[in-house]
Design a protein around this nucleic acid. Structure first.
Lengths: 310, 310
DNA sequence: GATAACCATGCAGAATAGATGCATGATCGA
DNA sequence: TCGATCATGCATCTATTCTGCATGGTTATC
């Protein structure tokens, strides 16, 4: 209900270039350019300035974007309250989440919603946590399931979002089947400190989880290899290249020569999985219902996997 | 910046029919109908119900309209603050006011704005106070100069508007030149209580002023004739049909056989002239500037007329 | 009880706004 | 200096949206 051009400006404020804004919003770069120009004309404000080969928000632009946060929140609250008060059903619902959440949590959620709300168009988008926030701003999705992170761009208490903790997903360690500790059921990080570790590239979402786990026990692991997908992690471990951390939500589905061990001891690293929505919208009946479904599914999967793998 | 369809809904909430909404917003009835239908589709809410041959807001609709007041206010505030912070100029400015205000206050204001802001498109609409409020909601105008009234539809502290007193325009009495009191400079209402009075039709904006003036002194005037325009009032008086009240802002411009007397005594009736804008927008630089100009003009006209006529 | 007035709505056609894709110009890094 | 990146303008096309008229249903009037 807020003008699309203002939404576009807010997305631009996030990513800084017309091209990226276009990619995120689904428009073409020309359209974004025209929208922002039109916005300035209508409001009679200069919001953007040339800055090298790119654009930069003016002080007025930054002011407007910052001030539009409560406006968005207010609208979301109003919409949520109206939906609740009127017992209405919305027609479209966008979900976003990272890969393992998409598979384990969002897919069942979408299936459930599809059966309980036959008329509802549910769309699921797989995206990193950072992109999920961007997609929320761009109004491409309404609810995201992500790994909590203290990223430099989005804080836990960002005024644009509201977050609810779904579960703390414990990190297990995976080691080759022929490893001396392979017969154990648990291990400590200290015991594995000298192993060659497999992790993600520095700067990625999960790398910070990795380092945080080890700084907690005061050891510096030796990073031997890098992998992006959990599948690759597991394959590397199976090939005997080293050991790695694997969230309990990520399935092993019977990989060869790989054993999953629970981590005990001083530091029990977990990744916190949260649901995020635009601030104000979280009381919307559909989001409330979704949160409930997510919670149930998360707990069920977690306990089931607990008994199955260990 | 708020979706036009929501604005349309707000206007509909005011006037209750598609046709009136179309007239007020400048759309055709079909367009209004389509907009409201589209709005319901997008929001997934049923906002309207058939009611006889017309439409009625549902509970959800009323909820949404009521809740949109702070949203509008917030946006107006934000826009005003951004304009102020960035020292920007807007491109279009709509003014509204009743007839004598339009002539005496709005015309000079528009002229001044036109010279100080050459790029600004100023539009003036003459309309009753009630319609001015409607036009403010419909965003057809941004500032209105009206006679304060405690109408049943718009209170002084309506959450949608903000008002500033410009001046208290005293009501004079006009009597035929051959009237016994014509040589006087002042008169009291009591002295004229038994005269045949000329007023406006009951229910009109100024009729309540008329009755209020007399109830204050506890007499009931005999209403002989009704007239809409001040010009007609004056002509009736000049023709010896009776006496009437005339705001000091309304010019007599040398009418034949009509004398203007100041009212003294217990009750000195005035009409309060106020400027009204959408709540939140009043801090906008352009509106602030306009208020200043209006104030100066109002005082100047008032004092000039004081020396000229009496 | 019939007729006229009123109100919303649907549809065909028209106008307008908005998006696309490519080409262009400007800027930065190598 | 060359290539890469980025924004923008233009021509074209698409899609939305508005208009005007006709229709059907509802209320008021005589």
């Amino acid at each position: 209900m807020i003008d699309a051009r203002l939404i576009t400006l807010r997305v631009f404020a996030r990513c800084g270039t017309i091209g990226a804004t276009a990619e995120l919003t689904g428009y073409s770069p020309s359209a974004v350019s025209a929208q922002l120009r039109e916005l300035q004309r209508v409001l009679g404000m200069q919001l953007l300035t040339k800055d090298g080969r790119g654009l930069r928000l003016t002080a007025t632009g930054r002011f407007l974007v910052a001030g539009s946060d409560p406006l968005m929140t207010q609208w979301e609250s109003l919409r949520a309250a109206a939906m609740e008060a009127g017992d209405q059903v919305q027609s479209h619902f966008g979900l976003g989440g990272f890969s393992s959440a998409a598979a384990q949590l969002l897919a069942p959620l979408a299936a459930t919603l599809r059966s309980t709300h036959p008329l509802l168009q549910v769309q699921v988008l797989e995206a990193d946590p950072a992109r999920c926030f961007d997609l929320l701003i761009a109004e491409r999705i309404d609810l995201a399931v992500i790994v909590a992170m203290q990223s430099d761009t989005y804080g836990e208490d960002d005024p644009r979002f509201e977050q609810r903790v779904l579960l703390d997903d414990p990190l297990d360690v995976i080691i080759p089947g022929d490893h001396p500790l392979a017969s154990r059921e648990t291990a400590t990080l200290e015991e594995l400190a000298s192993e060659p570790w497999i992790t993600e590239a520095a700067g990625s979402t999960y790398h910070s989880l990795f380092t945080a786990a080890f700084t907690a026990v005061g050891v510096t692991p030796r990073i031997a290899h890098e992998a992006v997908e959990w599948e690759t992690h597991i394959a590397f471990v199976g090939a005997g290249l080293g050991v790695g951390l694997l969230p309990r939500l990520a399935p092993l589905h019977g990989a060869e020569n790989v054993v999953r061990l629970r981590i005990t001891g001083q530091s029990k690293p977990t990744r916190r999985i949260v649901a995020a929505a635009r601030r104000g919208s979280i009381t919307s009946p559909l989001i409330q219902e979704s949160l409930g479904i997510l919670q149930v599914n998360a707990n069920r999967i977690l306990t089931a996997r607990l008994g199955e793998d260990l």
